[in-house]
Write a protein that binds this DNA or RNA. Sequence first.
DNA 1: TTTATTAAGTGAAACTGTTCACATTAACTA
DNA 2: TAGTTAATGTGAACAGTTTCACTTAATAAA
Lengths: 213, 213
Amino acid sequence: MHGDMIIRITKYYRILHKLKSLGLERVFANNLGDAAGVNATVVRKDFSLLKIIGQKRGGYEIDNLIASLDKILGKDKPQEAIIVGCGRIGGALMRYRGFASDGIKIVAGLDINTHVCDEQECPIPIYPLEQLEEIVKKKNIQVAILTVPEQEASDLFRRLCEAGVRGFLNFTPIGLKASKDEEDKHIIIHNVNIALELEQIFYELNISDNHML
Amino acid sequence: MHGDMIIRITKYYRILHKLKSLGLERVFANNLGDAAGVNATVVRKDFSLLKIIGQKRGGYEIDNLIASLDKILGKDKPQEAIIVGCGRIGGALMRYRGFASDGIKIVAGLDINTHVCDEQECPIPIYPLEQLEEIVKKKNIQVAILTVPEQEASDLFRRLCEAGVRGFLNFTPIGLKASKDEEDKHIIIHNVNIALELEQIFYELNISDNHML
DNA sequence: TTTATTAAGTGAAACTGTTCACATTAACTA
DNA sequence: TAGTTAATGTGAACAGTTTCACTTAATAAA
């Protein structure tokens, strides 16, 4: 399970859709590699691993590729998520239009205050936090975006886990960990820590400066 | 420059501050590793590489450690950034209070509409986009957060580069690349692609399901 | 003191991911 | 049809990280 492969696959997927919309029918590992910023061999190795075969000298058929990646990325099933915490960032994400083009649908928001989002601007319903378990089970939610204040993060994480959510996009600075008493193996957590990203940038600039002199 | 080391350092840094606020004076590689989710040997290797030395049997002195990491992370210099594009996400970030505790200060916003942010809620001034170059140079800005619509991303990125910005936190789905005609080496770009993160989560859930049966 | 213990420090092994080099196959060319 | 070219496919070399196993130093205990 090569770590970065997932990221590359999603990149390939986007590039392929763009190429298709341009009218192309086949693509070479070389071009795909250039567009994704990786070596052509990496592309071939990835596809080889995924049992996707191309044609010697003819490259890969874009339609076939997209169909394969659709399946690998789970695009054949509905990709639905909820947003827990509809404050500043959560609210911004509720109004974000970019998910639809990736086949992702935000089906509900959860918040203490159910009126944080004005109806016309965002047509996604917002429910009170008490209904969390009910909503998750009724709508069979697998993925949650966690955009709540820091101090509520681990509590809500636990509740969501217990309700059956298995994928988390965590915007809180808390490092969430699946507890060992549950079968922790199948909980996927991605952390987006904006302050941490900035810190890294400052660090990298700093060492790049130091190396120069 | 070991890739993930930077991320680990910032994690250590946060943990150390928490431990310090709890009154601890020394810390062992083992504990730090547990908290950061890595092996104790990794911690020691990291510190060894950074010329940070501990005491055999006594662990590391937290104050010393923090002081060292302060310098390594560039916390001895002011860490200032601007937000370019004060729409939904940019606006949310302007009102985000978490930066200050990490020593990061957002000193200005740039937007077509200079009245997107109501004064009382966010005390950071917002300037029109035309003043971008002026602001960057006057305030000697090194880092910019890019939260503009997709189609304006690469144009603004270029303008920011030319004005002297060297670090970017890019929230647009565009994959920014430093052009080769400039000395591209010293431009640091971090991409935060929320839709892509979600896609990865769905993918990982998908393969985890497939592996189970 | 001497002995035992604890944790840092580090060379070497093991592992992971990337790149190279080349075999393979399909299409084009003469 | 034979030869050339262009691209895939993959074993092997390589590089970078992580982990292991061991040494070293400091403290505590006997």
